[in-house]
Nucleic acid binder design. Structure first.
Lengths: 247, 247
DNA sequence: CACGCCAACTGGTATGATCAGTTGACGTGT
DNA sequence: ACACGTCAACTGATCATACCAGTTGGCGTG
């Protein structure tokens, strides 16, 4: 019913504004940022706030700062990390970037079966216990919105069990990206969420340590949901194109 | 001969020190950071430097900051992104974290064939031209150290051609991780770097748009170099264990 | 024309004051 | 004894101002 009121600090605001300009190509690679003193005047904030924001941009690999020289915008495609993905999914107009979305789906598509495989190879008894418990919850859940949550939880458990920190961190970045279009996914993937059998089969294969089968079932399941999302993106792009044509 | 002298700002130093404590589990998830005022006294720097560092930690998903409350350490395994990988490869003692290294190799192992596949599906004439040009350079190159550079360049071109921003960003994070043990890789993978035939075959398949073959050759090549690295890690861990036993 | 100096930028650090949200102890009233 | 409101003492957030330090380019001197 009620949502926590959103509040962000000034440096957050500055950061998001600058990041938006960089990811939106309004600030291109090679461009120089205005000096900190100019920026804090333009934005009407203190220099500390500007500096904190720029430090974050630097941390994200979006700019290069040189003591004494100007701060230069970098090409995020070659210097940013996977954590920049959430910032690329939705543009300033609130539209989904179809290319980015396809990339993300593809990434999930190839990671998931391997996560299932490694989970089968490395799962501890505790991890399997948690899986069983989650599956029980899943079976009792009829509400799609709640089911969606448990499904994401399922993959968290798997990547936990896989004992692969790179998979884990990559999935974190993907999760943050997905969370931006959570409600949309509820609609697109509703049927997939209710296909508890697939998750049971994956869990069963993991329990047996059958890596090949865990991977195969996961791949089949993910390929299907990927197809659904690709199809949605096609129609989404078509509607975008149509709007553009009318305008 | 000469290297550019390394210099880092105070806030960089503070950031790395805090990050090291968090990734090294000396600051565990749920712990609270000392207040900014205390920290800048402990570290002997001004508060601005501490704040910039904490903003970066927040950006990296390592801490949660609340206005009025204490700053809490988060579990990086569940809240950090793939860009945290470089910080996890080498511990404070300068030793390679074998588990992390295995994760990285595995990640590269499953990404590379798919990158080659998508490159075959999406390569533009310009991308193919660049590939040809790089292969020519590769053939003329006999020095392993230089070859290594061109090999990494090869994968950059492929991920560029794949037109997948998620692959691109993930590879960026992996590259930053690899660069920390660049010389070590020179030794381990020397033979692989000289196997120009493999790269030529991948490029040829991409040129023909033969996604399956591009993927298959890439997989074979990457599986081999992964095996070399896994083998090295096994012996590395054995030597670590031995040192520990002696001490 | 080559060189070196220097002024005017740039970012980096320091200080101290004040605003704003959170917490917990303390006292009051029931 | 317990519920509640108050408030002091934390916490981070913001601000203003000064000064340190590295870079750049122009200007004058040789």
């Amino acid at each position: 019913m009620f949502e926590t009121v959103k509040k962000q600090s000034l440096s957050d605001e500055v950061f998001h504004q600058l990041r938006g300009r960089i990811l939106g190509d309004s600030l291109k690679a090679g461009d120089e940022l205005p000096s900190e003193r100019i920026l804090c005047e333009l934005l009407g904030v203190n220099r500390g706030a500007v500096r904190e924001a720029i430090k974050r941009l630097q941390q994200a690999g979006l700019v290069q700062v040189r003591h004494g020289g100007a701060t230069m915008v970098l090409d995020y495609r070659s210097s940013a990390g996977l954590e920049m993905l959430p910032g690329l999914l939705i543009n300033e107009a609130g539209e989904i970037q179809v290319d980015t979305a396809r990339s993300i789906i593809r990434m999930r598509q190839i990671l998931s079966p391997e996560i299932a495989r490694d989970a089968a190879l490395n799962a501890t008894p505790e991890a399997i216990k948690k899986l069983d418990s989650l599956l029980a919850t899943m079976r009792e859940q009829s509400d799609t919105a709640h089911l969606q949550f448990t499904v994401f939880e399922f993959w968290e458990l798997l990547v936990d069990a896989s004992n692969n920190i790179a998979f884990r961190l990559a999935l974190n970045s993907l999760r943050k990206t997905y969370s931006q279009i959570w409600e949309l996914l509820t609609q697109i993937l509703a049927d997939d969420f209710h296909d508890v059998t697939a998750f049971e089969q994956i869990a069963a294969a993991i329990k047996r340590g059958d890596a090949e089968r865990a991977s195969a079932i996961a791949r089949k399941h993910i390929d299907h949901s990927s197809a659904l999302m690709f199809a949605f993106l096609d129609s989404y792009q078509a509607s975008l194109d149509q709007n553009q044509q009318e305008a």
